[in-house]
């Protein structure tokens, strides 16, 4: 297995995540897309860490996971309270702050 295979996988995962964020309306799915992009980045970190024999990349991956966990807590809380007040989780309907 070469490095490029891992990187290609990471790119594919990132693209799927980005497209999910751009095209889906359901806030939960959008959120999952974001997680997918974060994990794609993690995979790239690990790959390069392995390639260079340097633990810094793995360290970065751990930071990303911690931040992602915190972000999930906050993000889900926002989505839940949005649903409670507006009875919908469609991101297109949350447009109160438009011009």
């Amino acid at each position: 297995m070469t490095v490029s295979a891992y990187l290609i996988l990471a790119s594919i995962l990132f693209t799927i995540g980005a497209v999910t964020v751009l095209v889906r309306r359901n806030a939960i799915i959008v959120f999952m897309g974001i997680e997918l992009m974060l994990n794609a980045a993690n995979l790239a970190f690990l790959t390069f860490s392995r390639m260079w024999g340097d633990l810094t990349g793995q360290l970065a991956a751990f930071f990303v996971m911690v931040v992602a966990a915190a972000e999930v807590v906050v993000g889900l809380a926002i989505i839940v309270s949005l649903f409670r007040t507006r009875r919908t989780v469609s991101v297109d309907d949350e447009n109160l702050m438009r011009h």
């Binding site: 964020v21 751009l22 309306r25 702050m97 011009h99």
Partner: peptide
């Protein structure tokens, strides 16, 4: 006008 309310 860019601030159209569409998160996406």
């Amino acid at each position: 006008r860019l601030q159209n309310g569409y998160v996406r």
